[in-house]
Amino acid sequence: MVKQTAAARPKLSKPKVSHFETIQGRRQALNVINWVLLAAGSILMLSPLWWMLVTSVKTMQEVMTYPPTFWPESWNWSNYMKTWEAAPFDLYTVNTLTITILVVIGNVFVNSFIAYGFAKVPFKGRNALFAIVLSTMMIPGFVTLIPQYVLFAKLQWLNTYYPLVIPAFFGSAFNIFLLRQFYMTIPDELIEAAKMEGASHFWIWWKIGLPLTKPALATVAIFSFNGAWNDFLGPLLYVNDENLYTLQLGLQVFKGQMSTQWNYLMAGSLLVLLPVIILFFFFQKYFIQGINLQSGGK
């Protein structure tokens, strides 16, 4: 009996469709396409880095061969030692770190202080002043290059680190803007509560402003570190004494007038790049946040 009824029931036949017509199948196909595209993009982006790496371990002879090789005949890791010994790179590292750390400190604290003022301290002409600060972002840096050089020359700051470090203690429009946006998200009541509890604006900034804007400060710190570490033009313009050279200037020893020692230059560049890459891996989140802040998103 049971069997009969089972047989009598009309069979529910699945419609025949190919795997890619099902929702699941489509999703899989899309995934595959995404991965392929992303992989292709990554390879494209990483290829210069790869090129640097293989060049850095080649002999000068192999560097010059045509057609170029993408896989070196021999991996000469000793190039790195030779590179480091070719110039006083230890000294340059210390120099660069000194400048970079000072610039980061200046940028983080001074810009944060100014941004707090623009966001949380009402005063007459605040908006106008802020607009003026922002307008400095519209002036291309190269326009002010010569007047700035003349100014620093008159201050007798040439061949010192002052022109590279001191400006960081006078605020930068971009960082002020970025931090101000962040401060705006802190409720005024918090500031008012602290005021009533006996804190001055300075203390409110120090005890409440700074800790609450940590993510934005990290972004500022990373951008400043990057900028100062990679700065080539600044040291080139203002520093002549070889003892004051930074890493970026030091790399120039491999670039002669007649020929360039590409393998050593690439080895040096990779070494100099290393801290930035490491920084990026650890603080990726804040890099992206920084870009978000720039675009006004949150």
Binding site: P187, E189, L190, E192, A193, M196, E197, I208, P211, L212
Partner: peptide, 13 residues
Amino acid sequence: IAMVFQNYALYPH
């Protein structure tokens, strides 16, 4: 003078 705010205004950190 001490004040209690509508949104408490506690320091989150």
